[in-house]
Simulated assay, not measured.
Amino acid sequence: MRKEEKFEIVQELTERIKEYGNFYITDTADLTVAQVNTIRRKFFENGIAIQVAKNTLIRKALEAAGVDSPELNGVLKGSSTILFSSVANAPAKLIKELRKTGDKPVLKGAYIDSALFIGDKQLDALATLKSKEELIGEIIGLLQSPAKNVVSALKSGGSTIAGLVKTLQERG
């Protein structure tokens, strides 16, 4: 591979790391071509970008993107495939689904909104992470709940108060 090609790959990886903010590093070694094609298709169908790159190029891209992590650098051994997604838990859910039919891909590490998840044992935790949209929806629901209670209390209490005021006026 020429130096220019390596530079282009590092640039592309760096841009994707910055653009998505979430990425997973997995091991897909020893899979057949058919298995790799199936995995690629499933990731594509779920809006997850996938790229195989040399570990040294991934390291350089991480450094260029400002993700300088000894833990992530430590997982960059053997064959590495990097997954990019704007939804933090989507790759983990899909990896879990794919693992029902085989033992790959294996999660080496993940970077989710500046949080590190190292090792395949983190897959369940990543799959249960809530997306930003889910969290925002929950927060809005929580904020609306007290407001609705106050409004309904005012409405019901308002008629009682109005009734009291009217009765007091009629007596006076």
Rank of each mutant, 00 (worst) to 15 (best):
K166V: 13
N37C: 10
K60Q: 10
T167H: 12
Y24L: 01
Q51I: 05
K54A: 07
Q144N: 07
E8P: 00
E5C: 06
Q35G: 05
E5D: 14
V150T: 12
G172A: 09
Y111L: 08
G47K: 09
K6Y: 03
F44W: 15
A127W: 01
A29V: 11
T101Q: 15
T38G: 09
Y111W: 12
Q35M: 09
E170M: 09
F23A: 05
V106G: 00
R59F: 07
Y20V: 04
P146Y: 10
K77A: 12
L143H: 11
K130P: 00
N46L: 01
E97M: 01
E71W: 02
D124I: 10
E8G: 03
P91M: 12
F7A: 14
V151A: 10
G102D: 06
L76I: 05
L123D: 05
S80N: 13
D27W: 08
I39E: 04
L72N: 00
P146N: 11
L129P: 00
N55R: 14
R41S: 10
F117V: 06
L129H: 03
V151T: 12
S159K: 11
I118K: 07
E97I: 03
L13E: 00
I58P: 02
S80E: 07
A65L: 05
V151R: 11
E19T: 14
L142A: 13
G137H: 12
